[in-house]
Simulated assay, not measured.
Amino acid sequence: MKYNRNNAVKGYLLVSPLLLGCLVFYAVPFCMMLCYSVKSSAGRSATFVGLENYREMLQNEMFLLACRNTLKFLMIGLPLILLLSYVIALMLKKYVGRYKVLKSVLMFPYIMPIVGTVFLVEMLFAENGASTDFWLWLGEGVRSGWRLLGRLVLQLFYISGKILVTV
């Protein structure tokens, strides 16, 4: 295909709003975040502290716990999402004409906002959650198992939502 200057200009004109939007909404805030992250505070009275903020962050137990939990979540969720997405896609392809209601039911976890899901799981399965008190009479072992069940329910909501996106 021959190079045509007129087509190249049209292409750049079509892509320019996207490039401008990426620059304004992604690159500029990212550079601002990098500048703020090496200062002691935001504003005019900020002093340069270098990588001290990052050292503090990497020593913070809550941050490390969040990183570990996210890593566990991804190590369990990602393979399950891929496998189950493939299986469900094959099933839906085979039975797509017969079970239209099934497709609607499978979309429910995706439609349900993640914040509402987390709130529901927290309300039910937290240490002092609504349903946990009911299980206290069974003993402490069941209580820790109940928290594990809460994590599994949250993981299943996450997986089912991601599966439907890939299906």
Rank of each mutant, 00 (worst) to 15 (best):
Y26W: 14
K39P: 02
S45P: 03
K94F: 10
M107N: 09
V105D: 04
G50R: 05
S85G: 10
V87N: 02
L84H: 04
L82K: 09
Y95E: 12
F63A: 00
K72H: 00
N53W: 02
L13E: 07
M57P: 00
V49G: 10
C31T: 11
L20A: 14
F63D: 02
S104L: 11
L71G: 03
L84W: 04
V105M: 07
Y86D: 01
C31H: 03
L83K: 05
M57I: 00
K94N: 11
S37F: 01
L51H: 05
S16K: 00
N60Y: 03
S45C: 08
I76E: 00
L90F: 09
V28C: 09
V38T: 15
I81R: 05
L20Y: 05
G77H: 06
I81Y: 03
V96F: 12
L65H: 05
L106Q: 03
L102T: 06
L13F: 08
L34D: 03
V15I: 15
F73S: 15
E52G: 07
L80Y: 05
P17A: 07
I76T: 07
V87K: 00
R55H: 12
T70M: 07
T47S: 11
A66N: 06
S40H: 09
I76C: 04
F25A: 02
E52A: 14
P17S: 08
Y12G: 14
T47N: 07
A42H: 03
S37M: 10
L83N: 02
L78T: 08
R44Y: 06
V28L: 15
V38N: 10
R55D: 12
L106K: 01
L18S: 14
G11R: 01
C35Q: 13
S104Q: 10
L74K: 05
L34F: 00
L58W: 09
A42Q: 11
P79I: 01
L106I: 02
R68Y: 10
N69C: 06
L18H: 10
M75S: 09
R44C: 06
K103S: 13
F48G: 13
Y36S: 11
N60R: 00
L14C: 14
Y36F: 11
G77S: 15
C22T: 15
R68K: 13
R68D: 09
R44K: 12
Q59K: 13
L23R: 01
L102K: 01
P17M: 07
P29K: 02
M75N: 01
G97F: 14
K94W: 11
E61W: 05
R44D: 12
V28P: 06
F63S: 00
V87G: 03
I76G: 00
G50N: 09
I88P: 02
S16M: 08
K39V: 08
F73W: 12
I81A: 02
K103R: 10
